[in-house]
């Protein structure tokens, strides 16, 4: 049987260094160190909550669900973009450094300004764009399990923004639409109910969109939900290239709003 039933709660003293910043009083961020008695089963977020409740009431950060689905608690933990409710203290050394997510402006302590991120999500028109809207009385669309499987992976994004933090392209150009938003566009493009690929293409297939991506692949490596945004972007590049040549070679043919390249069964 598993160790949870037999093990005693053991405590380890961990030094946690947190980047602090309060715009009311600070010109720039600085590190503050806390000694935290961490229990074996704690996640990083538990340690941060301990600091907030027992050592420093002024520490600010976001969190809610504690089960890796609300996407609030992303932080840099020892230099790696991490969902702090999803990373265990037992896997960490005796000294842990926590900073706000990189590639975002710091609003206060571990809280970053995420308005730009939400605008980018919004810019790819992430909603069903049906050819004609069905009424509720007409019932549901038919969608076969294999059609669902095509896009399902790309619906799993929790908007935790770790991928934006890991992306070196984002660091160099904050206008980049970015991994999560492009993966979301791909999700709708692949959905059999959607006919909106062309409407999204203005943003998606622009220089700030897929063509800004140089396929570092870091986004997919840090994604806690295995969405694989890098894959979504590369597939979108192939689809957009196809569209371009279709338009170029067959100008008389109105570019068809077909599906992206994935999907041929045999």
């Amino acid at each position: 049987m598993s160790d949870v039933k037999t093990s005693q709660k053991s405590v380890r003293q961990v030094e946690i260094e947190i980047l602090r910043y309060n715009p009311d009083t600070d010109e720039k961020p600085y590190f503050q160190t806390y000694q935290v008695p961490c229990q074996e089963e704690w996640v990083i977020l538990d340690a941060v909550n301990y600091i907030k409740d027992n050592l420093d009431r002024s520490l600010s950060y976001r969190w809610s669900c504690h089960m890796a689905v609300c996407g609030s608690c992303g932080m840099m933990v020892n230099g790696e973009p991490t969902l702090s409710c999803h990373a265990f203290v037992r896997d960490m050394p005796d000294k842990i450094t926590i900073e706000p997510l990189e590639n975002f402006p710091i609003a206060r302590d571990l809280i970053v300004d995420m308005d730009g991120f939400v605008e980018k999500l919004s810019s790819v028109k992430p909603y069903i764009n049906a050819a004609e809207e069905k009424t509720v009385e007409q019932g549901t669309y038919q969608q076969l399990p294999e059609q669902l499987q095509l896009y399902k992976q790309y619906t799993q994004c929790i908007n935790c923004m770790l991928c934006y933090s890991a992306c070196p392209q984002m660091a160099l150009n904050d206008g980049f639409v970015g991994p999560a938003a492009l993966a979301l566009a791909h999700r709708y493009n692949l959905d059999s109910r959607d006919k909106g690929r062309e409407v999204r293409e203005d943003v998606v297939a622009s220089n700030a969109g897929i063509w800004e991506c140089s396929f570092v692949g870091a986004c997919s490596e840090v994604c806690p939900k295995h969405v694989d945004p890098a894959a979504a972007i590369q597939q979108t590049k192939i689809a957009a290239t196809g569209d371009y040549f279709k338009k170029f070679l067959m100008p008389w043919k109105n570019a068809q709003k077909g599906q992206a390249p994935e999907g041929g069964d045999q």
């Binding site: 715009p23 010109e27 720039k28 961020p29 230099g79 402006p105 710091i106 300004d113 070196p168 870091a218």
Partner: peptide
């Protein structure tokens, strides 16, 4: 850099970023 709205923007490591992480190094 502190912005007028109070937000602080950390300067990106323009030339050395790729030495920081294995994944960036492999990419370079």
């Amino acid at each position: 850099m502190k912005l007028t709205n109070g937000n602080y923007v950390r300067p990106p490591a323009r030339y050395s970023w790729w030495l920081r992480q294995g994944r960036y190094f492999r990419y370079m």
